[in-house]
């Protein structure tokens, strides 16, 4: 097998995996803190792709020509507004359901996901949307006919993803806010007793997840150049797969799971079959959940009797 083709697939896979990892963080943090799959998270990411394109169009309209400046401003606005979406989703669809039946938050999350998809579809139309290719150029490794290339954009994506993850890890492990988050994750009742406003912490976790999804949204739009209102669904499940693979509740696990999923999916579509790459990812999810539900870095769950 041609090692350069493998190299190319791995580079593509790492890029994809970094993005999965960013979205997986949202699932893993919410699951860690309230033990629930936030089904609407994939759609938050979808909303952020739209927001990014809209803000970029507005910024271009105001005549900011510098690509770097335009991207940074777009990123900032997108992060703020996506965070607001994340906060609102928690406030509307999850907070009123604390202490309700086990199924209730799951169902309301699915409702929220339907709402977001249809709302974007109705507002922006069902057609595909485009995102301009702002960053071009690449580095070639190898010579002549045998080479693989790494685009500057792919480098930016991986670096941005790792920097964001680094910042998040710092926030969670080194700040008092992060300490409150970890305390709430361990024992919400006790945290409440100790004066931590757990409702606020849960909101913040949703917001942090949404911020990561916003970064992912912009990066994906830059890389693929097009999106529609349905992207949140498939990417959402895959990011969740990444979270489970790495061990749900674990931040490094999310990025590790994302990278593994991205690379294996990329290799699979490169060497086996492109049509079935989603089937491969979902199959992987099922296999992991059957044989190692605690994932690679997660802690095994002890059933409380």
């Amino acid at each position: 097998m041609d090692s350069f083709i493998i190299g190319q697939q791995l580079v593509n896979g790492i890029t994809l995996g970094a993005i999965y990892g960013l979205i997986a963080v949202g699932y893993t943090m919410v699951y860690g803190i309230i033990g629930m799959i936030n089904f609407a998270h994939g759609d938050i990411y979808m909303v952020s792709a739209y927001l990014g394109a809209i803000f970029l169009a507005v910024i271009t309209f105001f005549g900011i020509d510098s690509v770097v400046l335009a991207l940074i401003i777009t990123l900032l606005f997108t992060i703020v507004f996506t965070a607001l979406y994340g906060w609102s989703v928690e406030r509307i669809a999850y907070r009123p359901l604390r202490g309700s039946t086990r199924l209730a938050p799951l169902i309301s999350a699915i409702g929220m996901s339907l709402i977001l998809q249809n709302y974007v579809q109705l507002s922006q139309g069902a057609r595909n949307q485009g995102f301009p290719a702002l960053v071009e150029g690449s580095v070639r490794v190898g010579d002549g006919a045998q080479f693989f290339q790494v685009t500057y954009l792919q480098m930016i994506i991986v670096v941005t993803a790792f920097v964001s993850m680094g910042i998040l890890t710092y926030v969670i492990h080194k700040t008092s806010l992060g300490r409150a988050c970890r305390a709430t994750q361990q024992d919400p009742m006790m945290a409440e007793v100790l004066g931590i406003n757990t409702d606020r912490i849960i909101s913040i976790v949703f917001v942090l997840g949404a911020i990561m999804a916003a970064v992912a949204g912009i990066l994906v739009s830059l890389n693929y150049g097009s999106f529609d209102f349905y992207i949140g669904f498939i990417t959402g499940i895959k990011a969740f797969t990444a979270a489970v693979l790495g061990g749900i509740g674990s931040l490094p696990g999310a990025i590790l799971g994302g990278l593994i999923l991205g690379m294996s999916e990329s290799l699979f579509s490169g060497f086996v079959n492109t049509d079935y790459k989603d089937v491969f990812a979902f199959g992987l999810l099922i296999v992991v959940l059957i044989f190692k539900p605690s994932g690679l870095l997660g802690k095994p769950e002890i059933e409380k009797v």
Binding site: S108, G111, M112
Partner: peptide, 17 residues
């Protein structure tokens, strides 16, 4: 779809059972 989604969320808030 929007209406279904809204109904699902409201139903879970108002009468989950």
């Amino acid at each position: 779809v929007l209406i279904f989604g809204v109904c699902m969320v409201l139903m879970m808030i108002w009468r989950p059972r």
